[in-house]
Design a protein around this nucleic acid. Structure first.
Lengths: 263, 263
DNA sequence: TTGCTCCTCACGTCACGTGAGGTGGC
DNA sequence: TTGCTCCTCACGTCACGTGAGGTGGC
């Protein structure tokens, strides 16, 4: 009579009776003797074995692996446990990362799900006084670029961040933004275009390897052009037109001021 | 052309294409437009929504709940995230507990899976110089008792630990152990029995409520008797016989020196 | 042209959960 | 006698995984 029913066994170890029966089906736990009523009757060895099964299964070890480990010698078990423990440690680190992401999600700060380089770039744009709607346009454009060109977009982004470190570029970038509200015949439109061309000439004057940093895929160019061109602003279109006209042809091609269709 | 295929979308966010299609089937993510070949084409909004889905799903939120939360207002989202975060924190704590249990499993120290009280009792037995095979017998017996009588076995165990704090009891316990090797006619057998009865009389003399602490279930008694009786030792059986004969009947019944069948 | 990606079913997986319908123990 | 536990099928669940058989893009 010194034995346990399936319910007592399961409750003591902290599993369901269904789980115990499942372990019988899987061959992890031997079927015990039955009493006169056909009830399973468990001894203390079954308790100890079920505890081992639960410890391993709780740690995420697949039952097929648990089965092997139950019969393993202590050294092999220790090796396996070290391996499992490393996985569990990884899971803890992952969960802690998820806590951070959840907090960001609740805080509405979606930049945190972006690559660090892009988040840094967006912060730099804001720091340079770029209007928020432009920052958002950059954000969306770069997300698409990073997704489409995982191998190269980070290089392109690094290039753009380097440009942004130049005070002249920052001034032009802000000017481009303000120009959206101007009349296309405003004299500042031509001034801006001239300044842009001067900057470009200086920037790319001695860089023979510039092309390797430059976005060279037609679709990528279209992407960048579309989010940067402030659709619907005649002044911006006029600036772009003037820049294309004033820039030497070779330079314009290198840095893709020429839309894809015209190359 | 500023859009992504399902593979680009999935790779960027870190899920499989199958998962994306699954989210479409579940209604979590709207089916995007198709291109001329029937391929799905995703925009940046789909990227951002899929990131939100992944953050929540990774945190263990069921997809049905994820669906609600995607449309929730910021306050409701913050509440839900706080709740989810509490669950994730619980998971981290659980994983850390599992690491400890895994380490114990690898170290071969199975006592750690037992209730703290039992582990402490076993340590006390060892500290009192009790032979290891007796400690193991106690261990197995108490595991079964704890499993069969979850409500009361901890009280019984507390009682036994209190007994063990008495130096006289410890001496008797050790004597009982040594007696296993004696001849049943050894004069020390009768001495031990007399000492046991004297101890019992003193121990239970003034305790009117002793019975409430005592194991009162026939099966439980049989359990304790069977693991403690050193089956096969004539000297031990003789000691038990003498104790039963010498103890006043009322005392013998209270503390269950009388086997169940004879009550 | 070859390999890669995409498409739609539709069954499989993992570790049990959940009735369905019935019997034994207290 | 009533409620509780036990028994054996056997289908259901959850979030996809994994071919099967076929087509489009570079």
């Amino acid at each position: 009579m010194n034995d346990l029913t399936i319910g007592q066994l399961a409750a003591y170890v902290g599993v369901t009776t269904r789980a115990v029966r499942h372990y019988h089906d899987r061959g992890l736990l031997d079927e015990p003797v039955r009493d006169a009523s056909g009830y399973r009757r468990y001894d203390v060895q079954a308790v100890l074995k079920l505890i081992r099964i639960k410890v391993l299964a709780d740690a995420g070890v697949p039952l097929a692996r648990v089965e092997e480990l139950l019969d393993a010698d202590p050294a092999a078990l220790a090796d396996a446990v070290a391996e499992i423990d490393a996985i569990v440690r990884g899971q803890i680190a992952e969960l802690e990362d998820r806590r951070r992401r959840l907090a960001d999600l609740a805080g509405g700060d979606e930049d945190v799900f972006l690559p660090g380089d892009l988040a840094a770039f967006l912060a730099e744009l804001r720091g340079a006084g770029v209007a928020e709607h432009i920052v958002q346009a950059e954000r969306e454009g770069w997300i698409l670029l990073l997704a489409r060109y995982p191998d190269r977009a980070l290089d392109w982004l690094a290039r753009k961040r380097a440009d942004l470190a130049d005070p002249d570029f920052r001034a032009l970038y802000r000017g481009y933004d303000h120009a959206a509200g101007w009349d296309p015949d405003d004299p500042r439109v031509e001034e801006l275009a001239t300044a842009i061309v001067r900057y470009l000439e200086r920037r790319y004057a001695d860089e023979g390897d510039a092309a390797s940093f430059v976005i060279d895929d037609p679709t990528a160019i279209a992407l960048q052009a579309s989010y940067f061109s402030e659709e619907g602003s005649p002044a911006i279109e006029r600036v772009a037109e003037l820049v294309r006209a004033k820039a030497p042809r070779a330079l314009a091609q290198t840095i893709h001021l020429v839309p894809p269709g015209e190359r």
